[in-house]
Design a protein around this nucleic acid. Structure first.
Lengths: 247, 247
DNA sequence: CCAGGATCAGCAGCCAGCCCGACACACCAC
DNA sequence: GTGGTGTGTCGGGCTGGCTGCTGATCCTGG
């Protein structure tokens, strides 16, 4: 029975966070030990470590974009805000994700157009974009680390697109849960627990549905014995079995 | 009448392609003129220029990922293929987009998991990932150029997520058309023409709908006098007016 | 150049998934 | 207590997916 879980480890893997993997692949030849992105950013001029409480804003749309952030602990939600007051989630960033990279894009002044909000209590490192640029020029391996960070961010985002193109909400929800397992899952004795306190409303905003529908669908999944919900934390018993439930 | 088109130019702008903007911001101090990403990649060891005919495959899922591509002319579709034979579009890349960056991610062997197919006749530059890595180490400004390319790709991708979280298909289609105007629009005497030959099926695969629905909705837009369709090319008369049509 | 096949567009009718609005209850903090 | 937030439930109604078919258009090879 237990043997049937091939590929299981694809989910539940904050350890598998790329973008900071110190697995030096023979680059950065100069110094012996290749430093991590975290260490690099922390050493920059004007960098700082910040802690933000759950549901506090990190930056608003319209704020000037001049700093780069590296998420050290917790989760950050990037969302787009509309005049209607509606807010849709564009990305749920996990630990070791880079964000605020827009500020690296051009030399000109530019403004944020996302709303970045701490989804959990968050610990992050931030540095001015200008420092980051200078660091890249001085040490090429920094550029490489950033590139890897951004690449992994692209992959993450594109998986999300996959999720969202599913027609029926049931598939979308399942697909989203699998993404969350991958990004925020921690193994528990019964399966994989998503280490976030997710309200139905938050899920709805992320996958373009409504609170009511999410309630119903999650209820279905629970009744089928695929997931467990305790105190707003979702546990997926078997991601492989869940994945089979695409309609 | 013509004065009412504030913000019009946000659409129709291949010229506004970032990632290759030679607007040197004081970086790359060494040589006088900062080269473009195109020039850099073309100069790498093992690089080559390739031309691919419409609807030919560039790489299949499962192929080893060892090269990086820069799209020079035309459009490329990245899609995910399922056992069911269904194929969903994850990104429609425009000119000057980087792709195949997965190969930069880690040093280990990894495989493509997208299907990359030439959506139009395509001209692109490609180079081995190892050469790219080496170039970054030697000249930091290369890393910066790549970073800008990837950043702009992330923005592009996240706009697509915005599009896809719209609930009703009508809004999704409108939003998608606006994205296409931004990425592939060329100004014409009547408005902005999307420089792609799009079948209804292709649109459906990109926004998670069906061919029939797209036919109906596009028909509606045409009847309302918002768009024109001639020989599979779509012309948007006024993006601003179209944007107002969100439900 | 034409013939034949493949792809694409358009129409209609049927049915279900899911949005909407409304309401009741559980939980938590103050 | 009380108010705020989150969860669970019920219908009614409509959007949009599915099937099946026809005609138009494009492409290719003889």
């Amino acid at each position: 029975m237990v043997g049937a879980t091939r590929g299981f480890s694809r989910y539940a893997s904050p350890p598998a966070s790329p973008g900071v993997s110190p697995a030096g692949t023979g680059l950065g030849g100069a110094a012996g030990a290749t430093p991590t992105l975290l260490e690099v950013i922390r050493s920059l001029a004007g960098s700082s470590v910040e802690t933000i409480e759950r549901s506090k804003t990190i930056f608003f749309p319209g704020d000037p974009a001049e700093r780069v952030y590296l998420l050290r602990r917790g989760a950050v939600r990037l969302s787009r805000v509309y005049e209607s007051g509606e807010e849709i989630t564009v990305a749920l960033l996990r630990e070791n994700s880079l964000f605020g990279v827009l500020s690296l894009l051009t030399g000109q002044r530019s403004d944020r157009f996302y709303h970045a909000i701490a989804f959990t209590r968050v610990e992050m490192i931030t540095a001015p974009a200008t420092s980051v640029r200078r660091a890249i020029e001085q040490d090429a391996s920094v550029g490489l680390l950033l590139l890897q960070g951004l690449s992994s961010r692209i992959l993450q985002t594109e998986t999300m697109i996959e999720t969202l193109t599913h027609r029926d909400m049931s598939s979308r929800l399942v697909s989203f849960l699998l993404v969350l397992c991958r990004d925020f899952g921690v193994p528990s004795n019964e399966g994989i627990t998503i280490d976030l306190r997710l309200s139905h409303q938050a899920i709805a905003e992320a996958i373009g549905s409504t609170r009511v529908t999410i309630t119903r669908l999650l209820g279905d999944l629970r009744n089928e014995g695929l997931v467990q919900i305790d105190r707003k934390k979702i546990t997926v018993f078997d991601p492989v079995a869940l994945a089979k439930r695409f309609s």
